[in-house]
Design a protein around this nucleic acid. Structure first.
Length: 504
RNA sequence: GGCAGGGUAGCUCAGGUGGUUAGAGCACGGCACUCAUAAUGCCGGGGUCGUGGGUUCGAGUCCCACCCCUGCUACCA
Protein backbone atom coordinates (compact mmCIF):
# COMPACT_ATOMS: atom_id res chain seq x y z
CA UNK A 1 0.00 0.00 0.00
CA UNK A 2 1.80 3.15 -1.15
CA UNK A 3 1.86 6.02 1.34
CA UNK A 4 0.45 9.37 0.30
CA UNK A 5 1.34 12.31 2.53
CA UNK A 6 -0.47 15.51 1.67
CA UNK A 7 -0.69 18.84 3.42
CA UNK A 8 -2.61 22.08 3.22
CA UNK A 9 -1.16 25.46 4.10
CA UNK A 10 -1.48 26.08 7.82
CA UNK A 11 -3.75 29.00 8.56
CA UNK A 12 -2.68 32.23 10.11
CA UNK A 13 -4.25 32.87 13.52
CA UNK A 14 -5.35 36.40 12.90
CA UNK A 15 -8.89 36.23 11.56
CA UNK A 16 -11.83 33.96 10.94
CA UNK A 17 -11.75 31.30 8.25
CA UNK A 18 -13.55 32.34 5.07
CA UNK A 19 -14.49 30.79 1.75
CA UNK A 20 -10.94 31.03 0.46
CA UNK A 21 -9.60 28.93 3.31
CA UNK A 22 -12.49 26.53 2.82
CA UNK A 23 -11.75 25.96 -0.87
CA UNK A 24 -8.22 24.88 -0.07
CA UNK A 25 -9.18 22.52 2.74
CA UNK A 26 -12.09 20.98 0.87
CA UNK A 27 -10.00 20.53 -2.26
CA UNK A 28 -7.20 18.85 -0.37
CA UNK A 29 -9.74 16.73 1.45
CA UNK A 30 -11.29 15.57 -1.82
CA UNK A 31 -7.82 14.56 -3.00
CA UNK A 32 -7.16 12.72 0.25
CA UNK A 33 -10.47 10.89 -0.01
CA UNK A 34 -9.82 9.99 -3.62
CA UNK A 35 -6.35 8.61 -2.79
CA UNK A 36 -7.88 6.49 -0.04
CA UNK A 37 -10.40 5.12 -2.54
CA UNK A 38 -7.51 4.17 -4.77
CA UNK A 39 -5.98 2.25 -1.90
CA UNK A 40 -3.21 4.59 -0.76
CA UNK A 41 -2.16 4.81 2.86
CA UNK A 42 -3.05 8.48 3.21
CA UNK A 43 -1.80 10.91 5.82
CA UNK A 44 -3.54 14.24 5.49
CA UNK A 45 -2.18 17.15 7.51
CA UNK A 46 -3.79 20.47 8.37
CA UNK A 47 -2.98 22.98 11.06
CA UNK A 48 -2.35 26.50 12.30
CA UNK A 49 0.45 29.03 11.88
CA UNK A 50 0.56 30.77 15.22
CA UNK A 51 3.69 32.91 15.45
CA UNK A 52 4.51 36.37 14.08
CA UNK A 53 3.89 39.98 14.83
CA UNK A 54 0.47 39.99 13.19
CA UNK A 55 -0.79 37.35 15.59
CA UNK A 56 0.49 39.28 18.62
CA UNK A 57 -1.32 42.36 17.35
CA UNK A 58 -4.55 40.50 16.70
CA UNK A 59 -4.39 39.06 20.22
CA UNK A 60 -3.78 42.47 21.78
CA UNK A 61 -6.58 44.11 19.86
CA UNK A 62 -8.99 41.51 21.10
CA UNK A 63 -7.73 41.61 24.65
CA UNK A 64 -6.11 38.19 24.76
CA UNK A 65 -2.65 36.90 25.54
CA UNK A 66 -1.05 35.39 22.42
CA UNK A 67 -1.36 31.92 23.97
CA UNK A 68 -5.05 32.26 24.74
CA UNK A 69 -5.71 33.85 21.38
CA UNK A 70 -4.14 31.13 19.26
CA UNK A 71 -5.86 28.50 21.35
CA UNK A 72 -9.17 30.15 20.60
CA UNK A 73 -8.43 30.53 16.89
CA UNK A 74 -7.30 26.94 16.54
CA UNK A 75 -10.58 25.71 18.02
CA UNK A 76 -12.52 28.00 15.76
CA UNK A 77 -10.81 26.84 12.59
CA UNK A 78 -10.98 23.18 13.60
CA UNK A 79 -14.69 23.51 14.21
CA UNK A 80 -15.28 24.75 10.68
CA UNK A 81 -13.14 22.04 9.14
CA UNK A 82 -15.11 19.48 11.05
CA UNK A 83 -18.39 20.89 9.79
CA UNK A 84 -17.02 20.70 6.26
CA UNK A 85 -16.11 17.04 6.86
CA UNK A 86 -12.38 17.44 6.41
CA UNK A 87 -10.82 14.07 7.02
CA UNK A 88 -7.37 15.17 8.15
CA UNK A 89 -5.34 12.61 10.04
CA UNK A 90 -3.23 15.12 11.92
CA UNK A 91 -3.53 18.70 13.09
CA UNK A 92 -0.37 20.64 13.75
CA UNK A 93 0.11 23.96 15.49
CA UNK A 94 3.40 25.79 15.27
CA UNK A 95 3.35 26.51 19.01
CA UNK A 96 3.48 22.79 19.78
CA UNK A 97 6.68 21.34 21.30
CA UNK A 98 7.04 18.85 18.44
CA UNK A 99 7.21 21.72 15.99
CA UNK A 100 9.59 23.87 18.03
CA UNK A 101 11.86 20.90 18.31
CA UNK A 102 11.80 20.20 14.58
CA UNK A 103 12.52 23.84 13.73
CA UNK A 104 15.43 24.01 16.13
CA UNK A 105 16.82 20.73 14.88
CA UNK A 106 16.45 21.61 11.22
CA UNK A 107 18.32 24.90 11.63
CA UNK A 108 21.08 23.17 13.59
CA UNK A 109 21.27 20.53 10.91
CA UNK A 110 21.77 23.15 8.22
CA UNK A 111 24.49 24.77 10.38
CA UNK A 112 26.15 21.39 10.73
CA UNK A 113 25.95 20.28 7.10
CA UNK A 114 26.35 23.61 5.36
CA UNK A 115 27.76 26.05 7.93
CA UNK A 116 28.15 28.65 5.25
CA UNK A 117 24.42 28.72 4.48
CA UNK A 118 23.47 30.58 7.64
CA UNK A 119 25.27 33.80 8.53
CA UNK A 120 24.58 36.96 10.46
CA UNK A 121 24.39 40.25 8.71
CA UNK A 122 22.89 43.65 8.78
CA UNK A 123 19.66 43.79 6.95
CA UNK A 124 19.47 47.19 5.46
CA UNK A 125 16.64 48.15 3.27
CA UNK A 126 13.85 50.50 2.48
CA UNK A 127 10.88 49.86 4.68
CA UNK A 128 7.38 50.74 3.57
CA UNK A 129 5.21 51.73 6.49
CA UNK A 130 2.11 51.09 4.40
CA UNK A 131 3.02 47.47 3.67
CA UNK A 132 4.90 47.01 6.95
CA UNK A 133 7.69 45.29 5.09
CA UNK A 134 11.02 45.78 3.39
CA UNK A 135 10.68 46.51 -0.32
CA UNK A 136 12.86 45.14 -3.08
CA UNK A 137 14.18 47.19 -6.01
CA UNK A 138 11.63 45.67 -8.40
CA UNK A 139 8.82 46.89 -6.19
CA UNK A 140 10.13 50.42 -6.09
CA UNK A 141 9.30 52.92 -8.80
CA UNK A 142 10.51 56.50 -8.62
CA UNK A 143 11.82 55.87 -5.13
CA UNK A 144 8.42 54.83 -3.82
CA UNK A 145 6.59 51.60 -3.11
CA UNK A 146 4.28 50.57 -5.98
CA UNK A 147 1.49 49.86 -3.54
CA UNK A 148 1.88 53.10 -1.59
CA UNK A 149 3.22 55.76 -3.95
CA UNK A 150 2.26 58.54 -1.57
CA UNK A 151 4.41 57.31 1.31
CA UNK A 152 8.13 57.85 1.84
CA UNK A 153 10.22 54.70 2.17
CA UNK A 154 12.18 54.60 5.41
CA UNK A 155 15.78 53.36 5.38
CA UNK A 156 16.00 50.76 8.16
CA UNK A 157 18.73 48.54 9.59
CA UNK A 158 18.48 45.36 11.59
CA UNK A 159 20.92 42.60 12.57
CA UNK A 160 19.57 39.24 11.34
CA UNK A 161 20.48 35.73 10.53
CA UNK A 162 20.50 35.10 6.81
CA UNK A 163 19.96 32.03 4.71
CA UNK A 164 22.09 31.71 1.60
CA UNK A 165 19.15 31.15 -0.72
CA UNK A 166 21.09 32.49 -3.72
CA UNK A 167 23.27 29.37 -3.68
CA UNK A 168 20.33 27.14 -4.58
CA UNK A 169 19.13 28.77 -7.74
CA UNK A 170 20.63 26.28 -10.17
CA UNK A 171 19.68 23.24 -8.12
CA UNK A 172 16.08 24.42 -7.90
CA UNK A 173 15.92 25.33 -11.54
CA UNK A 174 17.13 21.88 -12.48
CA UNK A 175 14.72 20.02 -10.25
CA UNK A 176 11.70 22.02 -11.28
CA UNK A 177 12.56 21.81 -14.96
CA UNK A 178 13.04 18.08 -14.75
CA UNK A 179 9.81 17.63 -12.83
CA UNK A 180 11.58 16.07 -9.86
CA UNK A 181 9.85 18.84 -7.95
CA UNK A 182 6.54 19.24 -9.78
CA UNK A 183 4.97 22.68 -9.64
CA UNK A 184 1.40 22.76 -10.88
CA UNK A 185 -0.65 24.07 -12.56
CA UNK A 186 1.65 25.10 -15.41
CA UNK A 187 1.09 28.83 -14.98
CA UNK A 188 2.59 28.69 -11.48
CA UNK A 189 5.47 26.60 -12.69
CA UNK A 190 6.25 29.19 -15.34
CA UNK A 191 6.14 31.98 -12.81
CA UNK A 192 8.56 30.17 -10.55
CA UNK A 193 10.92 29.32 -13.39
CA UNK A 194 11.05 32.92 -14.47
CA UNK A 195 11.69 34.01 -10.93
CA UNK A 196 14.57 31.56 -10.66
CA UNK A 197 15.97 32.59 -14.01
CA UNK A 198 16.18 36.14 -12.71
CA UNK A 199 18.28 34.96 -9.80
CA UNK A 200 17.78 34.74 -6.06
CA UNK A 201 18.80 36.93 -3.17
CA UNK A 202 19.56 35.67 0.29
CA UNK A 203 16.80 36.09 2.81
CA UNK A 204 16.81 37.05 6.45
CA UNK A 205 15.36 34.30 8.57
CA UNK A 206 15.21 35.83 12.03
CA UNK A 207 13.67 38.82 13.72
CA UNK A 208 14.86 41.00 16.55
CA UNK A 209 12.65 42.25 19.35
CA UNK A 210 9.87 39.75 18.69
CA UNK A 211 9.47 37.30 21.54
CA UNK A 212 6.41 35.49 20.15
CA UNK A 213 8.27 32.95 18.13
CA UNK A 214 10.78 30.16 18.28
CA UNK A 215 14.18 31.26 19.66
CA UNK A 216 16.84 31.14 16.99
CA UNK A 217 19.29 28.36 17.94
CA UNK A 218 22.38 29.89 19.55
CA UNK A 219 20.97 33.42 19.57
CA UNK A 220 18.27 34.01 22.17
CA UNK A 221 18.05 37.65 21.12
CA UNK A 222 16.29 36.60 17.94
CA UNK A 223 13.32 34.50 16.95
CA UNK A 224 12.92 32.49 13.79
CA UNK A 225 11.17 34.46 11.09
CA UNK A 226 7.60 33.27 10.75
CA UNK A 227 7.95 31.88 7.25
CA UNK A 228 11.06 29.91 7.98
CA UNK A 229 9.24 28.59 11.01
CA UNK A 230 5.90 27.85 9.35
CA UNK A 231 7.18 25.90 6.36
CA UNK A 232 8.85 23.39 8.63
CA UNK A 233 5.46 22.24 9.97
CA UNK A 234 5.21 19.75 7.12
CA UNK A 235 8.31 18.07 8.43
CA UNK A 236 7.45 18.41 12.12
CA UNK A 237 4.31 16.39 11.61
CA UNK A 238 6.31 13.43 10.34
CA UNK A 239 8.00 13.16 13.72
CA UNK A 240 11.26 14.66 12.52
CA UNK A 241 13.95 14.46 13.83
CA UNK A 242 12.94 11.21 15.54
CA UNK A 243 13.68 7.99 13.75
CA UNK A 244 10.89 6.89 11.45
CA UNK A 245 10.00 10.28 10.03
CA UNK A 246 11.00 8.92 6.62
CA UNK A 247 7.88 6.81 6.67
CA UNK A 248 6.03 9.98 5.66
CA UNK A 249 8.73 12.28 4.31
CA UNK A 250 9.02 13.47 1.58
CA UNK A 251 5.52 14.84 1.21
CA UNK A 252 3.72 13.70 -1.90
CA UNK A 253 1.71 16.87 -2.24
CA UNK A 254 1.62 20.33 -0.72
CA UNK A 255 -1.67 22.08 -1.48
CA UNK A 256 -1.24 25.84 -1.19
CA UNK A 257 -2.77 29.09 -2.42
CA UNK A 258 -1.29 30.69 -5.50
CA UNK A 259 -0.09 33.63 -3.42
CA UNK A 260 2.42 31.53 -1.55
CA UNK A 261 3.86 29.34 -4.28
CA UNK A 262 7.22 31.04 -4.02
CA UNK A 263 7.64 30.03 -0.41
CA UNK A 264 6.81 26.45 -1.21
CA UNK A 265 8.65 26.13 -4.50
CA UNK A 266 11.77 28.15 -3.78
CA UNK A 267 12.46 28.84 -0.11
CA UNK A 268 11.18 25.56 1.30
CA UNK A 269 12.97 23.27 -1.15
CA UNK A 270 16.16 25.31 -0.72
CA UNK A 271 15.93 24.84 3.04
CA UNK A 272 15.55 21.11 2.55
CA UNK A 273 18.49 20.97 0.15
CA UNK A 274 20.62 22.82 2.69
CA UNK A 275 19.59 20.28 5.31
CA UNK A 276 20.24 17.37 2.98
CA UNK A 277 16.62 16.22 3.10
CA UNK A 278 14.38 15.02 0.30
CA UNK A 279 12.17 17.52 -1.52
CA UNK A 280 8.39 17.27 -1.71
CA UNK A 281 7.21 15.63 -4.90
CA UNK A 282 4.57 18.11 -5.90
CA UNK A 283 3.24 21.53 -5.02
CA UNK A 284 -0.24 22.41 -6.23
CA UNK A 285 -1.17 26.09 -6.13
CA UNK A 286 -4.92 26.64 -6.34
CA UNK A 287 -6.62 29.90 -7.30
CA UNK A 288 -8.75 32.18 -5.18
CA UNK A 289 -12.44 32.47 -4.55
CA UNK A 290 -13.90 35.70 -5.82
CA UNK A 291 -17.08 37.10 -4.38
CA UNK A 292 -19.62 38.15 -7.00
CA UNK A 293 -16.81 38.75 -9.46
CA UNK A 294 -14.62 40.84 -7.18
CA UNK A 295 -11.51 39.96 -5.30
CA UNK A 296 -12.23 38.87 -1.75
CA UNK A 297 -10.90 41.64 0.40
CA UNK A 298 -11.16 42.04 4.12
CA UNK A 299 -14.42 43.89 3.67
CA UNK A 300 -16.08 41.68 1.06
CA UNK A 301 -14.60 38.63 2.74
CA UNK A 302 -16.79 39.29 5.71
CA UNK A 303 -19.81 40.04 3.54
CA UNK A 304 -20.37 36.33 3.37
CA UNK A 305 -19.28 34.27 6.30
CA UNK A 306 -18.31 30.69 5.96
CA UNK A 307 -21.05 29.78 8.40
CA UNK A 308 -23.71 31.35 6.18
CA UNK A 309 -22.40 29.55 3.13
CA UNK A 310 -22.55 26.22 4.96
CA UNK A 311 -26.03 26.89 6.30
CA UNK A 312 -27.41 27.78 2.88
CA UNK A 313 -27.67 24.18 1.59
CA UNK A 314 -25.51 22.20 3.98
CA UNK A 315 -21.81 21.33 4.02
CA UNK A 316 -21.94 18.81 1.16
CA UNK A 317 -23.51 21.34 -1.17
CA UNK A 318 -20.89 23.96 -0.33
CA UNK A 319 -18.07 21.48 -0.94
CA UNK A 320 -19.60 20.53 -4.26
CA UNK A 321 -20.07 24.11 -5.36
CA UNK A 322 -16.55 25.18 -4.44
CA UNK A 323 -14.96 22.28 -6.29
CA UNK A 324 -17.28 22.14 -9.27
CA UNK A 325 -18.04 25.78 -9.97
CA UNK A 326 -15.27 27.79 -8.33
CA UNK A 327 -12.61 25.24 -9.19
CA UNK A 328 -9.24 24.27 -7.85
CA UNK A 329 -7.03 25.76 -10.51
CA UNK A 330 -7.81 29.28 -11.69
CA UNK A 331 -9.71 31.89 -9.72
CA UNK A 332 -13.43 31.26 -9.59
CA UNK A 333 -16.51 33.12 -8.66
CA UNK A 334 -18.89 32.56 -5.78
CA UNK A 335 -22.39 34.01 -5.81
CA UNK A 336 -25.60 33.00 -4.11
CA UNK A 337 -27.35 32.90 -7.45
CA UNK A 338 -24.95 30.38 -8.97
CA UNK A 339 -24.82 28.41 -5.75
CA UNK A 340 -28.61 28.08 -5.75
CA UNK A 341 -28.66 27.15 -9.44
CA UNK A 342 -26.04 24.46 -9.00
CA UNK A 343 -27.79 23.15 -5.95
CA UNK A 344 -31.07 22.81 -7.75
CA UNK A 345 -29.78 21.52 -11.07
CA UNK A 346 -26.94 19.20 -10.08
CA UNK A 347 -27.78 18.11 -6.57
CA UNK A 348 -31.54 18.20 -6.04
CA UNK A 349 -32.84 17.60 -9.58
CA UNK A 350 -29.77 15.69 -10.67
CA UNK A 351 -28.26 13.21 -8.25
CA UNK A 352 -30.96 13.53 -5.58
CA UNK A 353 -33.87 12.97 -7.91
CA UNK A 354 -32.11 10.13 -9.70
CA UNK A 355 -31.67 8.34 -6.39
CA UNK A 356 -35.32 8.96 -5.49
CA UNK A 357 -36.76 7.63 -8.71
CA UNK A 358 -34.47 4.61 -8.94
CA UNK A 359 -35.00 3.59 -5.34
CA UNK A 360 -38.75 4.21 -5.63
CA UNK A 361 -39.00 1.87 -8.60
CA UNK A 362 -36.95 -0.82 -6.89
CA UNK A 363 -39.24 -0.51 -3.94
CA UNK A 364 -42.44 -0.44 -5.96
CA UNK A 365 -41.70 -3.13 -8.54
CA UNK A 366 -39.37 -5.48 -6.64
CA UNK A 367 -40.27 -4.94 -2.98
CA UNK A 368 -36.96 -3.20 -2.40
CA UNK A 369 -34.76 -6.14 -3.32
CA UNK A 370 -32.26 -5.66 -6.14
CA UNK A 371 -32.93 -8.35 -8.75
CA UNK A 372 -30.30 -10.40 -10.52
CA UNK A 373 -28.89 -8.24 -13.28
CA UNK A 374 -28.11 -10.44 -16.20
CA UNK A 375 -25.96 -8.93 -18.94
CA UNK A 376 -24.24 -5.54 -18.53
CA UNK A 377 -26.34 -2.79 -20.09
CA UNK A 378 -25.48 0.38 -21.97
CA UNK A 379 -25.56 2.11 -18.61
CA UNK A 380 -22.79 -0.15 -17.36
CA UNK A 381 -20.83 0.80 -20.44
CA UNK A 382 -21.29 4.46 -19.57
CA UNK A 383 -20.22 3.63 -16.02
CA UNK A 384 -16.97 2.09 -17.21
CA UNK A 385 -16.23 5.07 -19.45
CA UNK A 386 -16.99 7.43 -16.57
CA UNK A 387 -14.65 5.55 -14.29
CA UNK A 388 -11.80 6.01 -16.68
CA UNK A 389 -12.49 9.68 -17.29
CA UNK A 390 -12.95 10.30 -13.58
CA UNK A 391 -9.73 8.54 -12.62
CA UNK A 392 -7.76 10.41 -15.21
CA UNK A 393 -9.05 13.78 -14.04
CA UNK A 394 -8.63 13.05 -10.35
CA UNK A 395 -5.10 11.70 -10.80
CA UNK A 396 -4.25 15.02 -12.42
CA UNK A 397 -5.89 16.88 -9.49
CA UNK A 398 -8.50 18.17 -11.92
CA UNK A 399 -11.30 18.10 -9.36
CA UNK A 400 -13.71 19.94 -11.57
CA UNK A 401 -13.14 17.36 -14.28
CA UNK A 402 -13.73 14.57 -11.78
CA UNK A 403 -17.02 16.08 -10.70
CA UNK A 404 -18.04 16.60 -14.31
CA UNK A 405 -17.36 12.96 -15.07
CA UNK A 406 -19.40 11.73 -12.10
CA UNK A 407 -22.34 14.00 -12.89
CA UNK A 408 -22.18 12.99 -16.51
CA UNK A 409 -23.04 9.51 -15.30
CA UNK A 410 -26.08 10.97 -13.52
CA UNK A 411 -27.25 12.27 -16.89
CA UNK A 412 -26.58 8.89 -18.49
CA UNK A 413 -28.66 7.21 -15.83
CA UNK A 414 -31.60 9.56 -16.30
CA UNK A 415 -31.46 8.96 -20.02
CA UNK A 416 -31.32 5.21 -19.47
CA UNK A 417 -34.46 5.37 -17.34
CA UNK A 418 -36.26 7.33 -20.01
CA UNK A 419 -35.21 4.84 -22.66
CA UNK A 420 -36.01 1.64 -20.79
CA UNK A 421 -39.16 3.09 -19.13
CA UNK A 422 -39.37 0.55 -16.27
CA UNK A 423 -42.96 1.64 -15.49
CA UNK A 424 -43.95 0.51 -18.96
CA UNK A 425 -42.11 -2.80 -18.56
CA UNK A 426 -43.94 -3.33 -15.27
CA UNK A 427 -47.32 -2.64 -16.83
CA UNK A 428 -46.62 -5.06 -19.65
CA UNK A 429 -45.15 -7.64 -17.26
CA UNK A 430 -41.89 -7.87 -19.16
CA UNK A 431 -40.19 -9.16 -16.03
CA UNK A 432 -36.75 -10.00 -17.36
CA UNK A 433 -36.30 -6.63 -18.99
CA UNK A 434 -37.54 -4.93 -15.85
CA UNK A 435 -35.01 -6.86 -13.75
CA UNK A 436 -32.22 -5.87 -16.08
CA UNK A 437 -33.17 -2.22 -15.96
CA UNK A 438 -33.61 -2.04 -12.20
CA UNK A 439 -30.40 -3.93 -11.50
CA UNK A 440 -28.50 -1.59 -13.81
CA UNK A 441 -29.90 1.34 -11.84
CA UNK A 442 -28.81 -0.16 -8.53
CA UNK A 443 -25.32 -0.62 -9.97
CA UNK A 444 -25.15 2.96 -11.15
CA UNK A 445 -26.18 4.24 -7.72
CA UNK A 446 -23.41 2.17 -6.17
CA UNK A 447 -20.87 3.60 -8.60
CA UNK A 448 -22.13 7.12 -8.05
CA UNK A 449 -22.07 6.87 -4.27
CA UNK A 450 -18.38 5.98 -4.46
CA UNK A 451 -17.41 8.46 -7.15
CA UNK A 452 -19.07 11.42 -5.49
CA UNK A 453 -17.79 10.57 -2.01
CA UNK A 454 -14.66 12.76 -2.28
CA UNK A 455 -16.90 15.72 -3.09
CA UNK A 456 -19.96 15.16 -0.94
CA UNK A 457 -18.92 12.57 1.65
CA UNK A 458 -21.97 12.98 3.87
CA UNK A 459 -24.57 12.60 1.15
CA UNK A 460 -22.57 9.87 -0.54
CA UNK A 461 -22.81 7.90 2.67
CA UNK A 462 -26.55 8.57 2.94
CA UNK A 463 -27.01 7.21 -0.57
CA UNK A 464 -24.82 4.25 0.27
CA UNK A 465 -26.93 3.41 3.30
CA UNK A 466 -30.13 3.73 1.29
CA UNK A 467 -28.69 1.18 -1.11
CA UNK A 468 -28.17 -1.13 1.84
CA UNK A 469 -24.89 -2.70 0.74
CA UNK A 470 -23.21 -2.32 4.13
CA UNK A 471 -19.91 -0.72 5.07
CA UNK A 472 -19.24 2.79 3.81
CA UNK A 473 -18.93 4.48 0.45
CA UNK A 474 -15.57 5.90 1.47
CA UNK A 475 -14.12 2.48 2.16
CA UNK A 476 -15.58 0.71 -0.86
CA UNK A 477 -12.94 -0.94 -2.98
CA UNK A 478 -12.16 0.71 -6.28
CA UNK A 479 -12.19 -2.63 -8.06
CA UNK A 480 -15.76 -3.32 -6.92
CA UNK A 481 -16.85 -0.49 -9.22
CA UNK A 482 -16.31 -2.71 -12.24
CA UNK A 483 -19.17 -4.96 -11.15
CA UNK A 484 -20.99 -3.53 -8.13
CA UNK A 485 -22.15 -6.31 -5.77
CA UNK A 486 -25.73 -5.18 -5.36
CA UNK A 487 -27.69 -8.27 -6.32
CA UNK A 488 -30.09 -9.31 -3.58
CA UNK A 489 -29.50 -6.35 -1.29
CA UNK A 490 -32.50 -4.69 0.34
CA UNK A 491 -32.76 -1.01 -0.35
CA UNK A 492 -34.45 1.54 1.84
CA UNK A 493 -36.23 4.57 0.42
CA UNK A 494 -34.50 7.58 1.95
CA UNK A 495 -35.66 11.10 2.53
CA UNK A 496 -34.71 13.29 -0.46
CA UNK A 497 -30.92 13.55 -0.51
CA UNK A 498 -31.01 17.25 -1.32
CA UNK A 499 -34.35 18.71 -0.32
CA UNK A 500 -35.49 21.66 -2.35
CA UNK A 501 -36.95 24.44 -0.27
CA UNK A 502 -39.82 26.34 -1.88
CA UNK A 503 -37.79 29.53 -1.76
CA UNK A 504 -35.00 28.18 -3.95
C1' G B 1 6.89 50.34 -15.04
C1' G B 2 8.48 44.90 -16.44
C1' C B 3 6.82 39.86 -17.44
C1' A B 4 2.78 36.25 -18.11
C1' G B 5 -2.31 34.71 -19.08
C1' G B 6 -7.00 36.14 -20.80
C1' G B 7 -11.26 38.91 -23.28
C1' U B 8 -16.33 33.44 -27.56
C1' A B 9 -24.33 32.92 -26.25
C1' G B 10 -27.65 36.09 -19.87
C1' C B 11 -23.87 33.02 -16.68
C1' U B 12 -19.46 29.35 -16.47
C1' C B 13 -16.45 27.77 -20.15
C1' A B 14 -14.63 24.15 -24.97
C1' G B 15 -12.79 25.54 -29.43
C1' G B 16 -3.68 21.77 -30.89
C1' U B 17 -0.67 23.10 -36.28
C1' G B 18 -6.43 28.75 -40.20
C1' G B 19 -11.31 25.71 -44.12
C1' U B 20 -18.58 23.31 -44.62
C1' U B 21 -24.48 26.63 -41.22
C1' A B 22 -19.01 28.66 -34.05
C1' G B 23 -19.99 24.16 -29.54
C1' A B 24 -21.28 22.27 -24.15
C1' G B 25 -23.56 22.91 -19.32
C1' C B 26 -26.76 26.17 -16.57
C1' A B 27 -30.74 29.78 -17.24
C1' C B 28 -35.05 30.66 -20.99
C1' G B 29 -39.41 28.79 -24.52
C1' G B 30 -42.31 24.53 -26.62
C1' C B 31 -43.39 19.17 -26.80
C1' A B 32 -43.34 14.15 -24.58
C1' C B 33 -43.54 11.00 -20.36
C1' U B 34 -45.20 9.72 -15.27
C1' C B 35 -40.89 5.92 -11.82
C1' A B 36 -39.24 10.57 -9.21
C1' U B 37 -37.80 16.18 -4.76
C1' A B 38 -43.51 19.57 -11.32
C1' A B 39 -38.58 15.82 -11.32
C1' U B 40 -36.68 13.58 -16.34
C1' G B 41 -36.24 13.11 -21.86
C1' C B 42 -36.60 15.54 -26.74
C1' C B 43 -36.70 20.01 -29.76
C1' G B 44 -35.79 25.21 -30.07
C1' G B 45 -34.64 30.63 -29.61
C1' G B 46 -30.14 33.12 -28.44
C1' G B 47 -23.40 34.88 -30.12
C1' U B 48 -20.84 41.57 -35.36
C1' C B 49 -16.07 35.23 -31.36
C1' G B 50 -12.77 42.93 -26.94
C1' U B 51 -11.79 47.23 -30.97
C1' G B 52 -9.45 48.79 -35.60
C1' G B 53 -6.34 47.38 -39.45
C1' G B 54 -3.50 43.51 -42.22
C1' U B 55 -1.85 38.48 -44.42
C1' U B 56 -4.84 34.71 -47.11
C1' C B 57 -9.11 31.87 -51.97
C1' G B 58 -10.62 31.58 -46.70
C1' A B 59 -9.28 33.74 -39.59
C1' G B 60 -12.18 33.07 -32.65
C1' U B 61 -8.01 30.34 -35.03
C1' C B 62 -1.79 33.96 -37.99
C1' C B 63 0.52 39.40 -37.91
C1' C B 64 0.34 44.74 -36.12
C1' A B 65 -1.83 48.59 -33.10
C1' C B 66 -5.17 49.85 -29.34
C1' C B 67 -8.80 49.08 -25.13
C1' C B 68 -10.15 46.19 -20.83
C1' C B 69 -9.45 42.25 -17.03
C1' U B 70 -6.35 38.94 -14.03
C1' G B 71 -1.81 37.11 -12.04
C1' C B 72 3.53 37.45 -10.74
C1' U B 73 7.05 41.35 -9.69
C1' A B 74 11.32 38.06 -2.98
C1' C B 75 10.44 37.87 3.15
C1' C B 76 2.21 39.30 1.96
C1' A B 77 -0.53 32.30 4.51
Amino acid sequence: MPKFYLTTAIDYSNGDPHLGHALEKVGADAIARYRRLRGDDVTFLMGMDEHSQAVVEAAEQNGYSPEAWVERMALRFAEFWERLQCSHDDWIRTTEPRHRQAVTELIQRIERLNPDDLYTGEYEGLYCVGCEEFKQPAQIVDGRCIEHPTLELVPTKERNHFFRLSRYRDALLGRIRSGELAVEPAIRRNEILRLLEDGLQDISVSRQRLSWGIPFPGDPEQTVYVWFDALINYLSATGYPAEGYQRLWPADLHVVGKGITRFHCVIWPAMLLAAGLALPRKVWAHGYVQWEGAKMSKTTGTAVTLGEAIDRHGPDALRYFLLREVGFEADGNFSWERFDERYTADLADGLGNLASRALAMLSKYRDGVVPAGGEPTSLDGAGAATLEQYGEAMDALDLRGGAEAAWGLVANANLYIQQTAPWKLAKEAREEELDASLAALARVLYRLAVLVSPFIPGKAQALWEALGVGGSAASASWTSLAAPPVEGVSIRKPEPLFPKPASV
